[in-house]
Design a binder for these strands. Structure first.
Length: 434
DNA sequence: TCTGGGGTCCTAGGACCC
DNA sequence: TCTGGGGTCCTAGGACCC
């Protein structure tokens, strides 16, 4: 019995940039086209690689040393997220020429809802998908893979079906063809834990999962996996999130440093820097966290951390740094080499909602406000960390010669030429925060 | 996969209230 | 003082994604 006989109740496309970071690099520098290119130099492991390298068996996460053995003429580039984000924005803009209903899912992927567009565009869904692909490929100078299906999960199956540069259409009445040989762990949202569980119950393929009786699904699976089951059967469950992001549940900043360090002040300054960065982001979205979680990560990848709560939600780093300083010794173990620190800001409220009842605390915040407004203005003019706190200084100095991407001349993208974005002045003007 | 960095959502259980 | 039932909020931990 067919899973679903309805034709297209909805037409959802998923668009996925092929080898996105490596392709952006080649689009900016055409001399790289057709060459084995990998990004991730700053980490020493591959984050994105061109199809020339994929053909040789190079995979994400592989060490660059290993890749050099496989392909001695490989071109290794550091990640340049500013350029990639720019291409990402261009991708969204092109898709929006066809429909406003676009979900910006990640830097190299988006969903769009084409339902009802056949009439206004006088094109079939297939023709619309082809036109979008044509515009993306020619205008961005790289290829994209597209899936067209009745929902997001199946559109994802489609975009992965043929890569690179594929366009795969999965109508509801042909779902079985695509799912019958597709391993269940290839489905978006089904990870190693769930596929191991399903395997124990004799389920290997996506079709076997989709064909399980609803009673079995309800009795054995939690909500996310019940929803996936419905989508695999051609139903529309997951709506697109098309509004611009203006809210976060949490904001986090973590940074690894090599080599690991047992120097207490250095480790603390790394935390201080992460706090500053997280607060910059919170202010950009006008969010005020009321809780902070900070942690240290040892060389052995063990974590120790602490969660702290503020009397008043706010987004200026001073108070967070003071709090973290106070309880730092509860987390830090002397003579232990740490490889990373991180902070997570939680309980985020929109600034307007902050009540003005705790007079002392609020007036303290108000006092600092103009200072940070100026800091944010300088950052947007000259680049991040034009100005930073004294407690962050150790981290800034060391950053220049550790694994920071750095701002070496010549690596600044041509796309930002003249904008002076990467310039760093580094005046510790706010002084030490105790 | 010898391991970056940034997120989301769901579930179960406890505290507390009526 | 005890019991029953129901609601809300919060937290910790798990699983997954790019």
């Amino acid at each position: 019995m067919p899973l679903s006989i309805r034709s297209f109740p909805r037409a959802i496309i998923h668009i996925d940039g092929d080898s996105f970071f490596a392709s952006c690099e080649a689009a900016v520098n055409p001399a790289l086209k057709g060459k084995p290119v990998v990004t991730g130099k700053e980490r020493g492991i591959a984050s994105s690689m061109s199809y020339e390298l994929k053909a040789m068996g190079v995979k994400r996460g592989m060490s660059l040393r290993e890749i050099k053995k496989i392909c001695p003429e490989v071109i290794i580039l550091p990640s340049d997220y500013e350029t990639y984000s720019l291409f990402s924005k261009r991708m969204y803009a092109i898709v929006r020429r066809y429909t406003e209903a676009v979900e910006e899912y990640s830097i190299d992927e988006c969903f769009a809802d084409l339902t009802g567009m056949r009439r206004s565009l006088r094109m079939s869904y297939e023709a619309i998908a082809e036109a979008i692909k044509h515009d993306l490929d020619t205008e961005l100078g790289m290829t994209f893979s597209i899936g067209l299906a009745p929902n997001k999960v199946l559109a994802k199956v489609g975009s992965k079906w043929k890569k690179p540069s594929g366009l795969t259409i999965i109508p509801a009445n042909r779902v079985e063809t695509y799912l019958s040989k597709l391993p269940i762990d290839k489905i978006w949202g089904i990870g190693p834990q769930t596929s191991a569980f399903l395997k124990q119950h004799g389920i290997q393929t996506s079709l076997q999962y989709a064909q399980k009786p609803v009673e079995w699904i309800d009795a054995n699976m939690s909500k996310p996996y019940r929803e996936i089951w419905h989508e695999l059967r051609g139903e529309f469950v997951y709506p697109l999130t098309t509004e611009e992001k203006h809210d976060y549940q949490s904001i986090s900043k973590t940074k690894t440093f090599t080599p690991a360090s047992a120097d207490k002040e250095f480790v603390f300054s790394q935390l201080s820097k992460n706090i500053e960065n997280a607060c910059i982001k919170a202010r950009r979205y006008e969010l005020a966290p009321k809780k902070i979680f900070f942690f240290l990560k040892t060389q052995e990848f063990r974590y120790s951390g602490l969660e702290l709560t503020l009397a008043t939600p706010q987004s200026l780093p001073n108070e967070f740094i003071r709090l973290v300083r106070e309880s730092f010794d509860k987390v830090y173990r002397p003579r232990t080499p740490y490889r990373a620190t991180g902070v997570v800001l939680m309980g985020l409220e929109h600034n307007k909602e902050i009540q003005m009842d705790l007079f002392g605390a609020v007036s303290e915040i108000i006092k600092w406000k103009p200072v940070y407004a100026a800091v944010d203005a300088m950052d947007s003019k000259f680049g991040k960390h034009t100005v930073y706190l004294g407690s962050t200084m150790k981290a800034m100095k060391r950053g220049a010669h550790t694994n920071e991407r750095g701002d070496a001349p010549g690596r600044t993208s041509k796309l930002f030429k003249g904008e002076n974005r990467r310039q760093r002045i580094g005046i510790p003007m706010l002084g030490e925060v105790k």
